[in-house]
Simulated assay, not measured.
Amino acid sequence: MSSTNHIVRNRLDFLHNQLVNPDKAPLADDGHHINNPSELNILHISQYDLEHWDVDTNPELLFEPMSLTEIQKYPINPDEMDEDQDWATGSARDDSDLLEIRGLQEVRIPNLFLLNYTLCGYYPDASLRLSRELILETERDHSQDAHPLVVMTGYQPCNGKEDRILYGELVLVFCAMQNRAKQPKAKYEEEAEELSNMPEKLRLRYHDERRFPDEVHFPVLLLSFVVSQHGRMLYPCMDVERMVIRQSRLYSFEREESALLDLFARFLLSLPGA
């Protein structure tokens, strides 16, 4: 494990103590948004133009969205759309299985990625529940090298403000990064099942091999849906001791415009960059 990797993992442990307990997080007066991310050594870049992504102008992005040309081969069937973002995963696009086409798989329990956090929780106001809806990763078997990129959708039960990040959004992306950092390695399916059923203390004592021991960025792409039918994209990754979060503007889904649905579908179906 490199010194940079060690620093990154220590930083994630520090953020755990500051974020998972909402009483410690630097919240704004509304109790929903993070007041000043820089207090946690987080560089928050709002209004980031993810929409016009280009590999030459955005070399810092460690993922590649599905191209517009490709997504338009699978037109949306409006009659099959519902509130679960099925338009993005393919069931509302001429019954085409876009996850299979893209080589992606849905992450579900007992996937070892979810051993640490299930990525659900509450705001300081316990009546407001933050949750993830869908988690995707590249489809690999246990004998192959994997990529740490996690793409997911999440729902926040409150209004999001431009240029601000919600507590629930930050918790979701942090927990996803921490899950990747702590994810144990399994050489075959049976071992993965055994580890998923093993008590944490016993697992840490006898199995300390990590799935991504040399990773230093732990990239996550979150499609965040907030109250009043709006959504945005957040792309966090670690930069040694600092977390960098690139956040798009808010988009309105009130009219269900096909161009906007195509945009979010393209990013949800992203693959790891070169």
Rank of each mutant, 00 (worst) to 15 (best):
M1N: 10
R9C: 10
R9W: 03
R11S: 04
L15P: 00
Q18E: 15
V20K: 07
H33V: 05
H33F: 05
N35R: 14
L40V: 13
I42P: 06
E51I: 09
T57P: 09
P59D: 14
E60P: 03
P65Q: 06
S67A: 09
I76K: 03
D79L: 14
D82E: 13
Q85Y: 12
S91P: 04
D94K: 15
L99C: 09
E106C: 02
L114P: 00
Y117C: 06
T118L: 12
T118H: 15
C120G: 08
C120K: 15
Y123P: 00
D125T: 01
A126N: 13
R132M: 03
R132H: 13
T138Y: 05
Q144M: 13
H147M: 03
V150A: 02
Y155P: 00
Y155A: 08
N159Q: 13
G160N: 08
E162Q: 15
P184M: 14
E191T: 00
A192K: 03
L195Y: 07
E200D: 14
K201D: 10
D214I: 05
H217W: 12
V220K: 08
S228G: 02
S228M: 09
Q229D: 14
Q229H: 15
G231E: 02
G231F: 03
R232G: 01
M238G: 00
M243V: 02
V244D: 03
R249G: 08
L250Y: 03
Y251D: 15
A259S: 12
D262H: 01
A265R: 01
L268H: 04
